[in-house]
Amino acid sequence: MGENNKVLLGVLGGVLLGAFGAAVVKRGNLRPHAAKVLSYGYDIKDAIIEQAETLKETCEDLAAEAKEKYEDRKAEEQKPAVTPAPTVVPEDSKKE
C-alpha cells in the first residue's frame, strides 16, 4: 500500500471516528468512551503532521542537492580551456 493511501485512510478513519464520537456524545451516557475515541483522532492528526514534515524535509534536501549540482555544473562551464604549453627544444640539442 502506498504512503499516500495510508495517509488517506488515516484521514478517513479520523473522520469516521469523529462522526461516531459526535453521535455518542449526543446520547450523553457514553461521554468517556467518546473522548477516548476522539483522542485517537488526535493520534491520526499527529501522524499526518509528522508525514508532512518528513515530506517537507525531503523536498528541501532534494532542492539543496539540485542547487549544488547546478552550481557545480556552472562552475565547470566557466573554467577556461587549458591548452598545453608548446615544448621548447634548446638549440644545442638540435641536429643539423
Rank of each mutant, 00 (worst) to 15 (best):
M1P: 02
G2W: 01
G2K: 06
E3N: 10
N4A: 07
N4K: 07
K6Y: 07
K6P: 04
L9M: 07
G10D: 06
G10L: 09
G10Y: 04
G10K: 07
G10R: 09
G10A: 09
V11G: 01
V11F: 06
L12S: 04
L12V: 11
G13S: 13
G13N: 07
G14F: 03
G14M: 12
L16Y: 00
L16S: 09
L17N: 07
F20L: 15
G21Y: 03
G21I: 02
G21N: 01
A23T: 15
A23E: 08
V24D: 10
V25E: 09
V25W: 05
V25K: 11
K26T: 15
K26S: 14
R27Q: 14
G28F: 10
G28P: 05
N29Q: 13
N29T: 13
L30Q: 13
R31S: 09
P32Q: 04
P32L: 07
H33Y: 12
A34I: 06
A35R: 14
A35D: 13
K36E: 13
V37M: 03
L38K: 10
L38Q: 12
S39W: 08
S39Q: 08
S39C: 11
Y40R: 12
G41R: 12
G41W: 03
I44F: 09
K45Q: 13
K45H: 08
D46R: 15
D46W: 08
D46M: 12
E50D: 14
Q51D: 02
A52H: 02
E53V: 12
E53T: 13
T54R: 06
L55R: 12
L55T: 10
K56F: 01
C59G: 06
A63L: 06
A64W: 00
A64L: 05
E65A: 07
E65V: 03
E65M: 04
A66P: 00
K67Q: 08
K67E: 10
E68A: 14
Y70V: 00
Y70W: 03
E71V: 00
E71H: 00
D72T: 02
D72K: 09
A75V: 02
A75M: 04
E77S: 03
Q78R: 08
Q78F: 02
A81R: 13
A81Q: 10
A81M: 12
A81V: 15
A81W: 08
P84Q: 09
A85G: 05
A85M: 11
A85D: 07
P86L: 08
T87K: 14
V88A: 07
V89S: 06
E91R: 14
E91Q: 14
E91I: 15
D92A: 01
S93A: 05
K94C: 05
K95E: 03
